[in-house]
Amino acid sequence: MTEMSVDQTAVERPPALPRRWTASRIWGSAAVAVWVLIGAGFVWYLASSWSLDFVEKYGPRYWSGLKVTVSLVLSSLAAGAVLSIPIALGRLSKNRYVGALAHAYIYTFRGTPLLAQVFLIYYGLGQFSNELRSIGLWGFFRDAWNCGFLAFTLNTAAYQAEILAGAIKSVPKGQWEGASALGLPRLFTFRKIIMPQALIVALRPYGNEIILMIKGSAIVAIITVYDLMGQARWVFSKTFDFQAYLWAAVFYLIVVEILRNVWAWIEARLTRHLIR
């Protein structure tokens, strides 16, 4: 290195070759140009239809919609996480019947559209309001938010159980054997040795699940809940102005992107000991 730098003044370097216009560069530039055009058109459209009136009149609605979306997603994710633990354990159980039951649960909720589940709970159970009233559960099902919450919880519990079960299975058997050789109780082993390793494996799928839930939550708009999508529909129905949807799209993208970056940061932080 040192010799090189000594000679550097003397050696005239040939100029770098101009980057050639290869086929892929042409395609790439064209594709980027298309995106730039779409982006510009989008900004132009929003800017040209920008009016303080719109913001003043409907801004608070979007804000409250965003809060409903976030609170609905967070609470059903939390409830789903709790519910997913017994299901995941059932999935891993050596008992055939328990295993089959847990599998059936997961399969059912992962195999059918969330929208169908929401309809079944909201309108389907609504048909039995008298029966539900007589056992005192109607107060819960009467509210559309609760129905959405229940459907999302049951749905995400199935996904989270599958993630959790997969992650626990991914921890090598030797970890269990090592712990039992040390005489550690099974529950302790599970909590202190298996779970920390499993959760790191599960980190990425969990992040995906949160994003899927945020996006999936848009469908509660159909059962009278005013989440972000619901508010966008409301504003659209008042104004018939397409920017009503575009703004909501922008907000969804922002939320998802923030979440993705935060999650990537958390993941990097928690797995830094694994980097070689």
């Binding site: 995106w35 996006k215 939550s217 999508m229």
Partner: peptide, 16 residues
């Protein structure tokens, strides 16, 4: 261009 594409369509709700 590819990354913009996936960022947008994986970030938007399918309904949207």
């Amino acid at each position: 261009a590819g990354n913009i594409y996936t960022t947008i369509f994986r970030g938007l709700p399918e309904l949207m």
